[in-house]
């Protein structure tokens, strides 16, 4: 019982913000929802949290339909909207109490839950400060604390790490990982590294359509193809390095950039040894031979940057 979305569509005027989005996720999964700005991430999350009605399609959270039981759905969701909108004039502890009240946390448990969230999110020393006086990182933690307060089975976090410094990002990431062990977590981001490190599963959305859906490693393998190497050679000026490298066995293509070469290997071949032998034979000095780690960044660029039609992209993704 996690989240099931079926054929969600949201049309603004003539623009399809979300176009026939379907996916399923199970309890204990951390799903990264990835896409460039304006791809429809926030709209999808707003539909799941019953903030917006979809134009077509439906979704169920923890078994409850968003049309038939919006209140039950909201009761089971912890939601952190983009930019963490909190009441800046309220002290942290009052704000958490308000959230607990609105989420109908039983009166007897309120204090314990708030204390627990303060500990989990490291808010103890700031409890009596007004939210507006806190740094962005602490505000984000307050946002997480209010989302977790009623112990919801489903957490929806819209860009939880925007505006944080690297240390804070690392902390929030750890926190999400920890939480994700027992809950269904869906987080959106346009930062790939973050999703790669935090999520078990990735959903890439572009122009309202899902263009890729799969486990993190799976996606990396599926889209990366063969290995790539960066090669720098110290050769006499008249040597035809380009030509020689292109003729090396197993090299599919060569690209020159800032005095070094980027070799793409044909799949399943390791051309590094051949490159070394080539240089040794010709008497060139090999100053760099580094494998370039392909990452999801490439997958993402590949899927969302090309001016392909969405149909082509989705067929490539499957």
């Amino acid at each position: 019982m996690g989240i099931t979305a079926s054929n969600l569509t949201k049309v603004y005027g003539t623009q399809k913000a979300v176009d026939d989005v379907s996916f399923e996720m199970n309890t204990g999964e951390v799903l990264g929802f990835l896409g460039p700005n304006g791809a429809g991430k926030t709209t999808t999350m707003r539909i799941l949290t019953c903030y917006l009605d979809p134009t077509a399609g439906t979704a169920t959270l923890d078994g409850y339909d968003i049309h038939d039981h919006p209140e039950e759905v909201r009761r089971r969701i912890g939601y952190l909207p983009e930019d963490t909108p909190l009441y800046a004039d309220m002290p942290v502890i009052d704000y958490l109490r308000l959230s607990a009240d609105l989420q109908s946390v039983p009166e007897a448990d309120v204090d314990d839950r708030i204390q627990e969230m303060m500990d989990v999110c490291g808010l103890g020393p700031e409890r009596h400060k007004r939210i507006g006086e806190l740094s962005k990182g602490f505000q984000q933690r307050v946002g997480l604390a209010q989302a977790l307060l009623h112990d919801p089975p489903v957490l929806i976090l819209d860009e939880p790490t925007t505006g944080l410094d690297p240390n804070q990002i690392a902390e929030i990431r750890e926190l999400i990982k920890e939480i994700g062990q027992e809950k269904t977590v869906m987080l959106s981001s346009h930062i790939l590294k973050e999703v790669e490190m935090t999520c078990d599963r990735i959903l890439i959305i572009d122009q309202g359509r899902i263009v890729a859906d799969g486990a993190t490693e799976e996606l990396q393998q599926q889209f990366m193809g063969g290995t790539r190497l960066r090669v720098t050679v110290d050769a006499p000026g008249d040597a035809d390095v380009d030509g020689a490298l292109e003729n090396v066995e197993g090299v599919a293509s060569v690209q020159r950039s800032n005095g070094s070469y980027e070799l793409s290997a044909a799949s399943d071949v390791e051309p590094a040894a051949n490159v070394f032998h080539l240089c040794a034979d010709r008497g060139w000095v090999l100053t760099e031979l580094t494998p370039i780690e392909s990452s999801l960044e490439d997958v993402f660029r590949d899927l969302t940057e090309t001016p392909d039609t969405p149909e082509e992209m989705s067929s490539r993704a499957t």
């Binding site: 039950e72 009761r75 909207p81 609105l102």
Partner: peptide
Amino acid sequence: RSGTLELLVTKPVD
């Protein structure tokens, strides 16, 4: 304007 409305209406409140 400040966006807090989104957080308020997504609580289980009518």
